[in-house]
C-alpha cells in the first residue's frame, strides 16, 4: 500500500551547504508523525521542500504515490497538503476572521463575476461558516474582529493553524506550533491536534517540546545535520542511543 506522503532521498543544497541530505521517511494516513532533530538539522527545509516552497536539489516527494516535488506551493496545497510557518506568518493588517477566510480559498474559490453581481451569496456564507468554525475550534471565537497583529503570541500560533485547518486539508504540516505557548496552552493544543487526527487529518509535526512530541506522535523521524538518524515510536526514540547522542552532543533542546 502506498503511504499518504513519502520523501525519497530528499536533498537540498544551498551552495556548499547540504541542509538536507538523502532523507527518507513515510507518513501514514491518519497518524501524527513527528520530525525532530537539533536546531539546524534541516526540518524547516524539509517542510519547505514538501510544501513546494523550495524545489529539492535531489530526490522526490510523493503524495499518494504521485511525485509532487517541484510543484508550486499553491499546487501542492490544492492537492491537500497545507502548512504553517515556523515564525508566525499571518496577515497582520487583516482581522482574525479575514485571515481564516483566506484559509477557505480552496474549498470556496472566489469568482469575480459572481462577486460583482452578488451571485456568490452561498459561497460567501459557506466560507464564513467554515472560517468561524475553524476559529472556534482553535479557541479564537471571541477574537474574530481583532487585528491578527494585535494577538498574543500563543493566539497567533493558533490562528496560523486555524488558517491552515480552514481548508480542511488531508495533511497538515506544523512547524513548531507550540513555541510561544505556555504549558497550559500547549496541553490544550495537543488535545485539539488529537481531535484533528481523529477527524481524519494527518499531521506532520516539527516540534522541540519533547513532552508534546512524545505525547502526540504515533511515529517519529529523527534527523541530524540533514541526515536521517532514527525512526520509531516514542518509546523507541526516547531510548535510542543515536538520538540521545545527537541531542546531548549538539543542542540544549532536550526535554
Amino acid at each position: 500500500m502506498t503511504s499518504l506522503l513519502q520523501v525519497k532521498d530528499l536533498t537540498m543544497r544551498f551552495g556548499g551547504l547540504t541542509a538536507v541530505d538523502g532523507l527518507n521517511f513515510k507518513v501514514e494516513k491518519g497518524t501524527i508523525h513527528g520530525l525532530i532533530g537539533p536546531n539546524g538539522a534541516g526540518k524547516t527545509t524539509t517542510f519547505n521542500m514538501i510544501s513546494g516552497f523550495y524545489t529539492p536539489s535531489d530526490g522526490a516527494v510523493l503524495l499518494r504515490g504521485e511525485d509532487i516535488s517541484g510543484l508550486q506551493m499553491h499546487e501542492v496545497a490544492r492537492r491537500g497538503v497545507v502548512r504553517t510557518f515556523q515564525h508566525s506568518t499571518l496577515f497582520a493588517e487583516l482581522t482574525v476572521l479575514e485571515n481564516a477566510l483566506v484559509g477557505t480559498h480552496m474549498p470556496f474559490r472566489p469568482n469575480i463575476f459572481a462577486a460583482i453581481f452578488g451571485w456568490d451569496r452561498d459561497d460567501r456564507d459557506g466560507a464564513d461558516a467554515r472560517a468561524r468554525d475553524a476559529l472556534r475550534f482553535f479557541g479564537l471565537g471571541d477574537l474574530m474582529n481583532e487585528h491578527a497583529g494585535d494577538l498574543s503570541h500563543g493566539h497567533q500560533r493558533a490562528l496560523g493553524m486555524a488558517v491552515a485547518y480552514a481548508s480542511h486539508p488531508d495533511i497538515i504540516l506544523l512547524d513548531e506550533p507550540f513555541t510561544g505557548m505556555n504549558p497550559e496552552e500547549t496541553k490544550h493544543m495537543m488535545g485539539l491536534m488529537k481531535r484533528l487526527c481523529s477527524d481524519g487529518i494527518t499531521i506532520l509535526l516539527v516540534e522541540h517540546d519533547m513532552q508534546a512530541i512524545m505525547g502526540l506522535c504515533d511515529n517519529i523521524t529523527c534527523m541530524s545535520f540533514g541526515k536521517f538518524l532514527a525512526e520509531g515510536g516514542p518509546a523507541e526514540i526516547r531510548n535510542h542511543p543515536a538520538v540521545i547522542e545527537a541531542y546531548l552532543g549538539g543542542a540544549r533542546h532536550v526535554a
Binding site: 502548512r83 499571518l90 479575514e98 483566506v102
Partner: peptide, 14 residues
C-alpha cells in the same frame, strides 16, 4: 490583500 501582505501564506492557502 492576502497576495500583497503575505504572499507566502496566501500561496500556502492555495
Amino acid at each position: 490583500h492576502a497576495v500583497h501582505w503575505q504572499d507566502k501564506l496566501a500561496q500556502a492557502s492555495g
